[in-house]
Design a protein around this nucleic acid. Structure first.
Lengths: 217, 217
DNA sequence: GTCTATAAACAGATAGAC
DNA sequence: GTCTATCTGTTTATAGAC
């Protein structure tokens, strides 16, 4: 938005190409493991373009973080259509969120770059995590806690509820984070559609089991 | 910090210091983000010592992988004392494994370097993961699957069992992997002893709930 | 807005004294 | 086995033509 769009064309083609290339390479090789030459070459642009558009390599990294936050927020939106007022709606919401996230995380091909990048940024615990946490993780987790509270009849913002939601999300995310390990142990070359379905069913069973246990306690 | 070698005592003091320093820095900054100068300075050794002892930076990385595999194997050993013959023993084994791993992962201060390093290596999916997988992850996962099979009366090496064990381990590991996110959401500065206890209890509840659900199905 | 050319700093590896 | 000094290649950033 900082520049006036040329008539009819894509406003910032090199800018977007640079972000897309950087996201891909940062995710695969890490920030320090990727050179600006490599990024610009992959984007079909010049090395100097990075300094021009983003001020430098660090600026490009930040722009990648913003792109991830924006894209992920769009993906995660869609469950919050109908308001949740009773237990059945809450359970359905939790279920459909797990399904959507699992399919996106495990199968999503275009998600690969975003996720690898974010995984590294989470470990780094820097300003990019700050942004994505505020824009996406925190609001979504709060939403899930609200639904969890309705589904189990407990305080949505209690420590136990927040931790319970993390344990639900955690097992889901691990199927993406631990993918290299899982592929070895399962003797799979990749996680196929039917494999993902099996995982989704397992996660839903675990969800219902955990909810039932919470309702008893 | 530039000390000379205390000749005659510990067989390889510089070697060990280099591995320990590298593990720390690789975990925090990544392999590419860490220079050999930084490593040798922290170890109180000379830059040339890395080439002498390990052949180069890559050799030092491999040595770090071996050190992790060795240390982790020791930590994980200890549960496989008594043979598992009945359901109660199997459940107790799963429970105590979760407890031991959770306390080690979440609280263990000296585990920090090992885990950060391995997290990056898992994402990298290279030769270091190969070694650690074979030496530690695969055998331990197999052991857990065996116990899970006894506890639920299902085939220990079926795909569903292997995935179920991963979902159990996954939620455990996420409390370490996603630590920066969790600290923000829980508004904690660090995960204290009583917080860890709360998490362990949650994980045990989830374990029992999942086992119960598996027994029904 | 994109390019070439180059500067200045830094990387890992090594030769050779001790 | 440890040191200093240095070689060689690569890094990011920038100056200036177009």
């Amino acid at each position: 938005m900082t520049q006036s769009a040329p008539s009819g064309q894509n406003p910032e083609p090199t800018r977007e190409a640079l972000i897309s290339s950087a996201l891909h390479l940062f995710g695969r090789q890490g920030f320090d493991g990727t050179s600006t030459r490599e990024i610009s070459a992959r984007a079909g642009a010049n090395i100097a373009a990075i300094a021009y558009h983003f001020g430098g390599k660090d600026g490009l990294r930040l722009a990648c973080g913003e792109a991830v936050a924006k894209q992920m927020a769009e993906v995660l939106q869609g469950g919050a259509k109908t308001p949740i007022t009773n237990k059945m709606q809450a359970v359905r919401y939790l279920e459909s969120t797990i399904e959507a996230m699992a399919r996106f995380l495990i199968l999503g091909a275009q998600a690969e770059d975003f996720l690898s990048f974010m995984l590294r940024e989470i470990n780094e615990d820097g300003p990019i995590l700050d942004g994505v946490y505020r824009a996406m993780i925190e609001p979504k987790h709060r939403e899930l806690c609200f639904a969890w509270g309705i589904a189990t009849g407990s305080d949505p913002e209690s420590e136990d509820t927040r931790l319970a939601v993390f344990s639900m999300i955690g097992q889901l995310l691990y199927f993406r984070i631990g993918k290299p390990v899982i592929l070895r142990r399962m003797d799979w070359k990749t996680i196929g559609v039917q494999d993902a379905e099996r995982i989704v069913n397992l996660l839903k069973r675990n969800l219902h089991a955990a909810l039932a246990a919470s309702n008893e306690g």
